[in-house]
Design a protein around this nucleic acid. Structure first.
Lengths: 341, 341
DNA sequence: GCGCTATCTGAAAGCGCTTTCCTGCGGTAC
DNA sequence: GTACCGCAGGAAAGCGCTTTCAGATAGCGC
């Protein structure tokens, strides 16, 4: 990037025969400038294809028209749905989005926060359940504290344990509970659960909400398998359940992505969904309605969540009290769940 | 971001009792510094949670450890698959990725290039077929030319018409032709095509390659419907085909995403896939193998394409001749295509 | 026509950093 | 003991921009 030189404001000013100050004022519209000078500056700028150096601007303005977003994996529909909302909202505000994928590596997540901090991003958004261990928490705090003190904004989606920042919080517990009740209403009494990585608040809430609602109806669940939030995780979990002799009329996967894997596993083992076993997921990622059978799930407005988290981070008076915006989940009953035979 | 002050190198230097120059040298390891001084600087930096201002660095170094990626829609699996590859490769190089979604708005695409230029991104990557009209071409050229002249790198995936830059080019034509031949081999003779937006090189190549291969076997195709590259586009296109009295044993959709929509439409109209009509797509996005039936398609190594495009942009001697890396597509026959009854 | 004010323009400082240049120090050879 | 060399650290310039401050110009009333 250093091979040749960029066109600078000085070049524009010289070409237009005015001072840097005047050129700057014209290009930013920050003060009245005589019409002929203005025209000359504008002509020179477009002639030279001038683009202001955002770094010089950021340096003097101590801020950069940029927001950073950190998620675990862009190609997971859950995250890309939220990212889409963030980008739509960012575009409206003329902000550039720096999007980083951690690939679920907590060290990398902290490193990204540091880089975003260095970039003086206006806001940093953390999407998706975090790494809820002490070491991570401390490392993250070390990065975030000075960033916040310097006026940076931080907001998160779906992680509420440790970080004391503005949060968009899907009502995982209530959603899962509502799903459980709907499944009970269908007549199911024997359930199995495909749970996510232990400790994640999302997992705790979804699985906990599901189990509590069942327990309230006097239905215990002892068939649980844990695995990563991925198609493979769901596939492997379902296989493990099957290997141990699955005895359930309904299987609940903590995420749709896992449910997709579970569906494949069940089918491979010769089980029909929903005839032999009902299957439900969580999130309502776009694709699940096109599965056969279409998947029963708890729908989350992913794109809206993305829009809300950036709005939350950038809101006026951002330094006020912490705000938590709860996003309800809606149970969507589709053909993957029917009453047990 | 201007509420309070950031910790600067000057703060670190003062705390350590050394000059800025020394502090800078320690933190960058650019020159030997006496051990005790070095220790003091390092201690001060970590004490103060110092993060260098990337803008100040970028300003003096005339470059920013950042690459910009522009795609049409992050939540489209085709793009997010490629984006994933880009991010993985970027992470290895300690680069931050700025990812922008155009939402298929050509004006916005040009605006993003301008913003990335302002950010002095090391490279700008354009993912996915472009807007092949004259106005766009000129506007894009105005932005890209000075960027390239200033040493910026540009590379693209899957758009070869107008932009004369390094390119990763999926072999759409060959892939579609191979698919057509495979379908012919299954015994199909009556085909319908769901095409994408007219004029896009991707569409021209895929549909053209498909038709040419059929024509070579003496099989004409007159049932074609155009629509946007989306599930809805596929759905609407299939409905239109059906309304006009679909007379084909096999339907080819220009992208998997469209095929998903088509599958839904066919099913709604009571047609069974593959018994009544075979269906094939293109791209091999992850989800299609989990459809019922799993979709026959042409597989593209999306993630690898992402890795290659960033490698191409950042390669040494980037100012050399234009390079075009062709990526072959592999026909994957799955259950959505069988021989006609 | 003169003096005052209201506008607009230009000079210059400074944002936080890297890097060149230069000074001062210690060590070595004679 | 003196002259020279090498090296580490500091001062200062400068990256491209915004913005304050002061100066210049025009406009107005008398």
């Amino acid at each position: 990037m250093a091979d040749r030189v960029h066109v600078t404001l000085r070049d524009v000013a010289m070409a237009a025969g005015v001072s840097l100050a005047t050129a700057s004022r014209v290009l930013n519209g920050t003060a009245k400038v005589r019409e002929d000078l203005r025209d000359r500056v504008e002509a020179a700028a477009s002639e030279l294809a001038y683009t202001p150096n955002a770094h010089a601007q950021a340096l003097v303005r101590a801020s950069n028209e940029t927001v950073g977003v950190i998620c675990h994996d862009v190609s997971d529909p859950y995250f890309s749905g939220i990212a889409r909302g963030v980008m739509r909202a960012a575009a409206q505000r003329d902000l550039l989005v720096m999007l980083a994928s951690t690939f679920r590596d907590s060290t990398r997540e902290v490193a990204y926060v540091s880089m975003l901090r260095a970039q003086r991003a206006r806001a940093i958004l953390l999407i998706g359940s975090g790494f809820e261990d002490r070491r991570w928490e401390r490392a993250m705090d070390v990065e975030l504290r000075p960033y916040l003190n310097a006026g940076g904004r931080v907001a998160v989606v779906s992680r509420h344990r440790s970080l004391r920042v503005d949060t968009v919080l899907p009502e995982n517990r209530q959603g899962a509970a509502a799903l459980a009740r709907a499944l009970l209403a269908l007549g199911h009494r024997r359930f199995a659960i495909l749970s996510g990585p232990p400790g994640l608040s999302t997992v705790v809430d979804r699985v906990g909400g599901f189990r509590d609602a069942l327990a309230a109806a006097g239905v215990p669940v002892d068939q649980i398998e844990e695995g990563p939030f991925s198609r493979e995780g769901g596939y492997a979990g379902a296989c493990a359940l099957l290997d141990r002799g699955l005895d359930a009329t309904c299987l609940f996967a903590a995420t749709d992505v896992m449910a997709v894997g579970a569906l494949a596993a069940l089918r491979e083992r010769g089980l029909r969904v929903p005839d032999d076993v009902s299957l439900a997921g969580f999130d309502d990622i776009p694709v699940v309605r096109d599965l056969t059978p279409p998947l029963t799930t708890v729908s989350l407005p992913l794109e809206e969540m993305g829009e809300r988290v950036i709005a939350l981070a950038l809101r006026d008076g951002g330094r006020g009290r912490r705000r938590i915006e709860r996003v309800p989940g809606t149970v969507i009953l589709r053909a993957s769940t029917i009453g047990p035979r």
